[in-house]
Design a protein around this nucleic acid. Structure first.
Length: 787
DNA sequence: TGATAAGGCGCC
DNA sequence: AAAGGGCGCCTTATCA
């Protein structure tokens, strides 16, 4: 085909890369740069161009003005990429800035995709948007639509929400009067005019303001049609109407519908037969690409036009468009998705159900304990900050990286670029005063973090709420964030020192089960390194075995009892040294060192990074422990340490890394033993320039397999014990750990059940892998479950 | 004042 | 030039 490129001055320097992306076609890139379309159109016609490929913001803006008449529309190539305009019989295909063909791994794929979308018959033309409003006030119309939607093949659903600020005194009065409003309102970040989070807090009630439905019907002539309706939620009758629509039989489709589910369940209006989700289908297909509805529509809807600004103009139309694009994106995705994508989707989608129930119920917070912790860390914060004010200068703020950097650079000859914990360690090594300063900075930072992120987080009805998203990461791990009800915070990074705030509901205990060395085991079986498999399976202690293999020291000599000389009856005697509690002290430094080496090697660190991570002191200590030559530099020491790992487990960084490189080079895909496939845009190789791509892909396999084994266990556990038997309430999954709540009388049953589900065997490269777990523990308080 | 980027840090 | 995997949230600084 013939293509004609248009770029602005900046992007025109990347014409050659655009031509490369369109190899196999005749591509003309004009010498002259115009901000006008017409001279380009003439030239394109002369070239007999089938389409113009546009990477020119100003010309895009003119096209938008011409076709949409608006001045304020976004003219961003990023928003409009994938859109098409028709001018004088020529298609103008908007793409991302050509510059990205050099700076990103995905731009070429997307450019080719958007061109193919316009010319391949695989992408069906989509009927135009038809839409209308419904309301409980027009009963006849509403009933007619209900009947029609009951016959639909599928219904896409989308809600709009609002944080309605309330008068807290009135709310409090209603509470005092015993009215059933408890838990409706909560302190939360206020909504700005643009719908985003304000920095201000206030009492609000999360509300659904409208809900849109887009139905899909098969017409008599065999073609498909769709129609969107928008229902504003203004009164109880509207809510009842919404419940009836949501209960209809046709399958429902959403875009990241955990959001819809959370709000709708709160309205007692759950979606019946919710099976489709464009966000999760996109994640199943291209986990490394964006998953906004806008982007998904740009990939799958032929006549996609950017519509997100409609929100500020006509909210009803905006809502209707969301449902329309959700529906048609889903239809095209299902039509085009290869089998491996659908297989991924079947693995992923069902996880949304336990995830929604986890975050919606959340954890009860022990407010007495919360207050104790608040006072404890406020005191720590105030004291340390006051001392720093005296030592450094009044008003010095340790939470300000620029300020800290200025201070430590003023006090030292080496110049620090960073002021993070590792850098502070390096600074503290310089002397006593430095150590005092660093200790105080750490106290302030730690206390501030604990207070602002965890202790003072907003609650709803005394509970910590959150979301868990099965499609949140590149590897297939779940991600977590604050609740869609605008309270709480993410659950997967709760501070271990603060888990004492979270308690079981009356009559229940919190229980958990934790996988043991999960990623080391998956790494061993995936890499097929015989020694590593032996270590994870047969060593009494994995890190002790590592230390032994790394340094050629018998395992029973790795951890040594520390002896001291004491005088007994006037005679010098060697006795084991004991701590204040009478416990025998042991030197674990070799084991600790091997732990660090293992950690560094797992993520394919280079020597300099290991040095930075371990810190100078620890590397010097390692050098001494291992009797390395005095003249050996610290970076060389780190090289030596990392080399120990490579020599011990040669197949890991050897054969396995090569296998990943080759797999991606030839197929672009990595598939785990669970059957999850990741499409890889990166180009891993042994070249230093591609090291980060290599790192992420070699880390992907064990991380993904490990977490999906837990996910499968969690789903089975949820289905059997929460949904069918109704004796547990799932709380969270934290990658290799499952947390739930259960009545104590049922725990003897659920404990072995979850443990068994989590240790399900799986065949990896012909060997059976079982990831053992700690069996589980329970307590009324989450904080007591950790050892 | 609001929006965004940068730096830092909590977890696995 | 060299680069430790996967996340989300908070504070500060900065700019419109």
């Amino acid at each position: 085909m013939n293509f004609y490129l248009i770029a602005d001055r900046y992007n025109s320097s990347y014409y050659s890369f655009a031509k490369m992306a369109l190899r196999g076609h005749s591509v003309l890139a004009p010498k002259a740069i115009y901000d006008l379309l017409s001279p380009h159109l003439r030239a394109a016609k002369k070239h007999k161009a089938d389409a113009i490929i546009l990477s020119h913001p100003k010309i895009l803006a003119k096209l938008i003005r011409k076709h949409h008449g608006a001045d304020k529309e976004s003219d961003s190539l990023m928003d409009w990429a994938g859109a098409v305009f028709h001018e004088e019989g020529i298609k103008i295909i908007v793409v991302r800035p050509f510059q990205q063909l050099v700076s990103t791994d995905t731009a070429e794929h997307l450019l080719r995709w958007w061109v193919r979308k316009q010319f391949s018959r695989d992408f069906p033309p989509i009927p135009e948007l038809l839409w209308d409003n419904v309301s409980s006030t027009d009963t006849a119309k509403a009933e007619a639509w209900l009947s029609r939607f009951a016959e639909a093949e599928a219904i896409a659903v989308d809600i709009e929400t609002y944080r309605e600020p309330i008068d807290f005194h009135k709310y409090q009065k209603a509470l005092d009067d015993g009215q059933p409003v408890a838990g409706l309102a909560a302190m939360m970040k206020l909504q700005t005019a643009s719908g985003k989070n304000s920095t201000k807090m206030g009492w609000c009630i999360p509300k659904i303001t409208m809900i849109g439905y887009c139905g899909l019907w098969l017409k008599d002539d065999g073609s498909w049609e769709s129609y969107s309706i928008v229902l504003r939620i203004d009164c109880m009758a509207d809510i009842e109407l919404m419940r009836r629509f949501n209960a209809l039989e046709p399958m429902k489709i959403t875009q990241n519908g955990g959001y819809e589910a959370t709000h709708l369940i709160r309205y007692n209006a759950p979606l019946h037969n919710w099976l489709g989700d464009t966000f999760h289908m996109m994640h199943s297909w291209y986990a490394e690409l964006p998953r906004t509805l806008n982007f998904i529509a740009s990939m799958f809807v032929k006549d996609y036009q950017y519509w997100k600004e409609e929100a500020g103009v006509n909210m009803d139309l905006y809502n209707a468009k969301d449902t329309y694009y959700t529906l048609w994106a889903w239809v095209v995705m299902v039509k085009l998705a290869p089998d491996w994508v659908k297989k991924n989707y079947r693995i992923e989608f069902r996880k949304v159900f336990p995830n929604v129930t986890c975050g919606l119920e959340g954890f009860k917070v022990d407010e007495v304990e919360q207050q104790r912790l608040r006072e404890l860390y406020t005191k720590q914060y105030d004291n340390a900050l006051a001392r720093l004010g005296t030592i450094i200068y009044p008003g010095f703020n340790p939470n300000s990286a620029p300020q800290v950097k200025a201070v430590i650079n003023a006090l030292s000859t080496v110049k620090f670029k960073s002021t993070d914990d590792k850098a502070l360690t390096k600074f503290a090594d310089r002397g006593e005063l430095e150590l005092v300063i660093v200790d105080l900075i750490r106290q302030v930072r730690a206390a501030r973090k604990k207070l602002s992120t965890y202790i003072d987080t907003t609650l709803m009805d005394g509970r910590l709420l959150y979301e868990i998203n099965a499609g949140g990461t590149d590897t297939g791990r779940a991600s977590s964030k604050a609740s869609n009800l605008w309270v709480g915070t993410q659950i997967q990074n709760q501070d271990n020192e603060l888990r004492s705030m979270y308690i079981a509901d009356e009559g229940y205990v919190i229980a958990n089960c934790d996988g043991s060395q999960a990623e080391s085991r998956t790494t061993a079986y995936i890499s097929q390194d015989a020694t590593l498999i032996d270590s994870v399976e047969n060593a009494k202690d994995f890190h002790t075995r590592n230390a032994s293999l790394f340094f050629g020291i018998p395992e029973d000599e790795i951890i040594k009892v520390i002896y001291e000389t004491v005088i007994v009856d006037g005679v010098e005697v060697q006795q084991p040294k004991r701590d204040a509690n009478g416990n025998i002290l042991k030197d674990k430094s070799l084991r600790t060192l091997s732990k660090r080496i293992n950690h560094g090697s797992n993520y394919n660190m280079a020597a300099a990074k290991l040095l930075e991570t371990m810190g100078v002191k620890n590397v010097i200590e390692a050098k001494r422990l291992l009797n390395l030559p005095l003249g050996m530099g610290l970076k060389k020491v780190c090289e030596y340490l990392l080399e120990r790992f490579v020599l011990t487990y040669p197949d890991l960084k050897g054969r396995y890394y090569d296998e990943v490189i080759e797999k991606i080079r030839t197929t672009k895909m990595l598939t785990t033993a669970i059957g999850w496939t990741r499409y890889c845009f990166g180009k891993p190789s042994r070249l230093p320039a591609n090291k980060l791509a290599l790192n992420k892909y070699v880390a992907h396999m064990p991380q993904s397999l490990s977490v999906m084994l837990v996910d499968e266990a969690m789903f089975d556990f949820w289905l059997e014990y929460q949904i069918i038997r109704n004796i547990v309430r799932l709380k969270a999954q934290v990658h290799d750990e499952v947390v739930y709540m259960v009545k104590p009388e049922h725990y003897p049953e659920t404990k072995p059940a979850l443990s068994t589900l989590m240790s399900r065997p799986i065949t990896v490269n012909g060997r059976e892998l079982v990831i053992p777990n700690d069996g589980g523990a329970c307590d009324e308080c989450w904080g007591n479950l950790k050892d």
